[in-house]
Design a protein around this nucleic acid. Structure first.
Lengths: 207, 207
DNA sequence: CGAGTTACTTACTGGTCGTTCAGTAAACGA
DNA sequence: TCGTTTACTGAACGACCAGTAAGTAACTCG
């Protein structure tokens, strides 16, 4: 029984049968993890969604935790790349901050399921704890930009810096809970809106 | 072996042995649910945290889902009460909105673990779906206040109303992920900060 | 001191979990 | 066609899961 589902790669010059490629397996695994939670997702459920058997999955990955590790690494790598983009390392702190925030929103939308998984971690296994540490490093990098912008006088300083950063991330990260690509709002527009609300607030501009 | 742990109620005039009271069982269950996720938390784990046996837990509650239902009902009831507070039903839309948001932050802090559990729901069981529906009703009530305030001209209208409300909730709800009572920031100050950032933004006031 | 009520304990059931293993079907090069 | 490599299949394993059944210890009341 040949499977016609996407994610198959055949005729690639290698010997042996056609196979699922890892990326497809990962996509489906991440979707399942987000639907039911990582721990509550069984390997049997993954196999069912892939249209194969449990043991077939084990041919591609070494175990359940391996899938989680691969998925989290993808999300984190993309986020970390944002910090090294042109414009994120030079210039006034506020414009660097805006650029990094915009980049974060873009990554969040582009790899929505992967970042969603990352943002829901609780840190109960070593894999999760290491991912949380990398995420904390990213957050700290952004927090430093906030501090710099406060020092430069372009951001308000009447509120605790940590609180500021956390509220900022709270707003941005919440996107994974409701934004779905293909809707009326483009990713570009979303980034504009988020940054505008974050910096200027929801009240009518008072000038 | 008499247990000296808190959450025991003895000498209350009833016949029979002293017992855990439901509130303590619920507190510990909610903490465990938040640590590991609801589905990944076993009744055995709950029993261990309570210092009893699995079947002892079943004497107090009819099952695992019952614990979830009780916990979610508590969080939702408190949030719904905020909508009926004095000042939340009369007056200008913006001040009503500010009052409701402040109330939401207060409930969020007072019943932090319970609201945390509510905010992490995925809707995989009937109990979860019903709780999500009540939560959506609450969100819609706040969304109406936002619409009114926009109509009155006190809130900016250049950004989609749904997006506005979602970013607002994103910021507020993120509190459960980092705020811990007993720290340097009082709940009152937290509410002030959140509402100030939401309405006026993070940029230095331009006047 | 019983009698009655409450709050358990110990032992167990059927089912599901992540993972493994021995065997095999399908594609390839020679 | 044959041998090799690749990608599986189906069955099984021990551990753990939510929930149950039957017995019993602890307490109050009369």
């Amino acid at each position: 029984m040949a499977h016609a589902s996407p994610g198959r790669s055949a005729g690639n010059g290698r010997a042996g049968r056609e196979a699922y490629d890892l990326a497809s397996v990962l996509d489906i695994a991440v979707a399942a993890f987000n639907d039911h939670g990582y721990e509550a997702t069984s390997m049997g459920m993954l196999a069912q969604r892939l249209g194969t058997s449990k043991s077939a999955v084990y041919y591609h990955v070494s175990g359940k935790e391996d899938l989680l590790r691969l998925a989290l690494d993808r999300a984190l790598s993309e986020l970390e790349l944002v910090l090294t983009r042109d414009g994120a390392t030079k210039g006034p702190a506020e414009s660097r901050l805006r650029l990094v925030l915009r980049g974060a929103v873009e990554v969040l939308v582009k790899d929505l399921p992967y970042v969603t998984l990352l943002l829901r971690l609780r840190g109960n296994t070593e894999v999760e704890r290491q991912a949380l540490e990398r995420r904390r490093d990213f957050n700290n990098a952004v927090a430093e930009l906030v501090e710099e912008a406060r020092g430069a006088g372009t951001m308000r300083s009447d509120i605790d810096a940590r609180t500021t950063t956390r509220l900022l991330f709270g707003m941005i990260n919440s996107i994974v809970e409701w934004y779905r690509p293909g809707g009326p709002i483009t990713p570009d527009r979303l980034a504009d809106d988020v940054i505008s609300v974050a910096f200027d607030g929801l009240a009518t501009a008072a000038d």
